[in-house]
Write a protein that binds this DNA or RNA. Structure first.
Lengths: 155, 155
DNA sequence: TATTGTTATACTCTATAACTATA
DNA sequence: TATAGTTATAGAGTATAACAATA
């Protein structure tokens, strides 16, 4: 339920604080794990000129089908106006380009450029490496279980 | 990696978008689950005059030992200046009071008031009920497993 | 009339540095 | 000199409404 990050180990303060309610609270734990994860991801992405939301959008633009802005908004559960801002930045960095759908001129299709594709490949590696730091305490089996359970909740 | 919320089911758009990279990404899934969870928590807490961070701090203040602001900051991994703001609000609402530690006058001990204790009890119930909506797809065993795995990563 | 993308705006959250009072 | 708390500020993230172009 919080989101900042330091490297301290608050659970060690067991004598000075009673966090029993929160420590058994899945939402609290999820919030904390997200804080750790997005901090690591931010650091891993920064050298590649990407932030977390930009990385997610670029990931979709690099997929097998070039998505529309609307599809991106739906998939990431972002407001369409937020997608505009993210894509503005990605386009300014030369990672994606917008192209009008000839069948419906309202629609923008978001395509990754060559630079976008290669940057994404490198950024993806960097994120994966950083993730090792977060998940080092989990066995491969446990990671798979965690992924499966999160997927059930997320959708 | 995103944080807004609607009730759409983006995974259904499988034909229109390729989210395969993200859907197997624990950090992405964690971010999404957090978004869902904190949205539910926000809605559950609003009628009680609490927000997510305030609820977390109040939870600690209602624990067996009254924490110092520093202990709260350490435990929640918040910057001490953020704790000040949260406690200001909790104190203005009459949920907690600050009292100076007589042994070290720099230290503020945060105690829950009677109103704080009763509000926390109600808010905790509301959050628990709301959580049922998020976790309805998980069995009790799965919830326990998820809690255990998250705890391993979180600390 | 409904939908895609856009602009503008405000609010919350997060991070940082500088300050005070105590130790 | 170091620590607990505070103040101030800026940046990032999020939510909302109104708008133009197109269907």
């Amino acid at each position: 339920m919080t989101d900042s990050m330091t490297t301290s180990a608050p659970v060690d303060d067991a004598a000075h604080i009673d966090g029993s309610d929160l420590l058994s609270d899945i939402e609290f734990l999820v919030a904390r794990v997200r804080a750790i994860g997005s901090q690591h991801a931010r650091e891993a992405l920064a050298p590649h000129g990407l932030r977390v939301r930009g990385f997610a959008v670029l990931s979709l633009a690099c997929g097998a089908v070039s998505p529309t802005q609307r599809a991106i908004a739906d998939f990431l559960q972002l407001d369409p106006s937020q997608v505009v801002a993210v894509i503005d930045q990605l386009e300014a960095s030369g990672f994606v380009r917008r192209s009008q759908d000839p069948r419906d001129r309202r629609v923008n299709i978001v395509e990754a450029t060559e630079l976008g594709l290669s940057t994404y490949a490198k950024a993806r590696e960097a994120v994966r490496d950083a993730r090792e730091l977060s998940l080092t305490t989990l066995s491969p089996d446990e990671r798979e279980t965690l992924t499966r359970l999160l997927l059930k909740v997320a959708f």
